[in-house]
Nucleic acid binder design. Sequence first.
DNA 1: AGTAGCATGTAAAAAGTTACATGATTAT
DNA 2: ATAATCATGTAACTTTTTACATGCTACT
Lengths: 189, 189
Amino acid sequence: MAGDNRTVYIILGLLSHEPMSGYDMKKRINVSISRFWDVGFGQLYPTLKRLEANGMIVGAGEHNSGRPDRRVYSITGRGRLVLRRWLAEPASKEYVRYEILLKLFFGSLAGQEASIATIEAFRARYAGAADLMQVYVDDLRRVLPDSPDHLCYLLTVMFGQRVYKAYLDWAAEALELLGTRPSRGGDLQ
Amino acid sequence: MAGDNRTVYIILGLLSHEPMSGYDMKKRINVSISRFWDVGFGQLYPTLKRLEANGMIVGAGEHNSGRPDRRVYSITGRGRLVLRRWLAEPASKEYVRYEILLKLFFGSLAGQEASIATIEAFRARYAGAADLMQVYVDDLRRVLPDSPDHLCYLLTVMFGQRVYKAYLDWAAEALELLGTRPSRGGDLQ
DNA sequence: AGTAGCATGTAAAAAGTTACATGATTAT
DNA sequence: ATAATCATGTAACTTTTTACATGCTACT
């Protein structure tokens, strides 16, 4: 995870569409990016400062009547160049950390019930998410002919839909192996 | 990712089965754990020192004729207690970082060809892995009745098999959407 | 009255990666 | 000859998380 700071490219990527503040970025990240790469305020604000010092973005203070002042950033030519260069490079290997699998792997010390509870919690965590991704996929596929710019978003949502489905299918199979009939219905949340 | 240091529990979990050296642990991690939680030497050795200082493990120097000396660690009662306590707690949320989705999300600036190349590389990365996981699953399911202690391992391998399959299915669908017939055969490596 | 949202940040700590160092043996 | 394996470790660095700080407005 050392090496290139991806927070930089997320900021540049968002600003390549339109100017916005750090707070706006976090909101965008939460709804569309955080599923595969989350960024916190503690990373966002310092990185914005650094990018401005390096001339990749420029910020303009904006007065906001009644609300705190905003600092709206725009991408510069240099920022666009750096972003494009990164996009042309091959993507690094996927980085995952599944504590649930760690617990199951060492689960013989905890007993079957503990493993079952762990998997049930995992399933509950993704039951709603998988359905939601399916809805998004269906919607985006419908509007795609009229707005092909949604394709980039659709690709990432499709990914989520398939991976979450794999999660749920695995959970069902794992529970069966552990000798539990999967409970039907009422397992959302 | 702050909070609890999972390297600690990986070490304790491995030692709960049998005593071994740091080097042994890394080998075990590479073949069975690194797919869902990797640990490097730079984390392993300092953590071993800390765990010994805290009385969770004890190390014994072993002379190795012709080879470097080894330090073989064993888990203590206190270490077992800490491990069991962690196993009883609910697993934290999954942590993932997919640079490929980041690049695709901002891919409109790079063009379709770049997106296609990105996805092809991703597919090549997992084509072999998915097949391998399937082989492991089949093997483990066959030996399971005779050695039920393999169940914990099987659960994690099943997870990998399903997720890697989802990766490949997504890649095929994504390439189709981008207007590329998926190339048949010879796409390993 | 209390919570959530708006909006920006800082500081400390933890976690993780990378590069380096040593040096013998064994396989290609 | 060269590379890989065995075996341990350190140091510097980067990245990420968490907790704190401020203060106003709008909703319940």
